[in-house]
């Protein structure tokens, strides 16, 4: 039998999983409440949550800053055409 605390209390491992899940999809009402409850008393996971969010923001920003590296289009076209002619 599971411990009665299982029903209201997430382990840190589970809580951090749900923190990641939250970035991608909505949590169910129960998940959301249980996660809040956990974060209310767990300092380590609260830090994890803040840091995870920061990493998320950084990754998005990197993606947004990515600039296209131009190709020499004429050269590429010639290369492709001669490749086609080889076929």
């Amino acid at each position: 039998m599971k411990k009665p605390t299982h029903y209201i209390w997430y382990s840190c491992q589970r809580a951090t999983e749900l923190i990641e899940k939250k970035h991608i999809t909505e949590l169910s009402a129960i998940e959301s409440v249980k996660l809040k409850l956990h974060l209310g008393i767990c300092g380590a996971c609260t830090k994890y949550s803040r840091q995870s969010e920061l990493i998320e923001k950084l990754a998005k920003e990197i993606a947004a800053r990515q600039v296209e590296v131009a190709t020499d289009l004429l050269f590429l076209q010639e290369r492709i055409i001669s490749k086609i002619e080889e076929q």
């Binding site: 382990s11 840190c12 491992q13 589970r14 380590a44 996971c45 830090k47 994890y48 840091q51």
Partner: peptide, 11 residues
């Protein structure tokens, strides 16, 4: 057991 290892717990 579901708890942070002491060395791994976020600072």
């Amino acid at each position: 057991n579901g708890h942070w290892k002491e060395s791994e717990s976020p600072k």
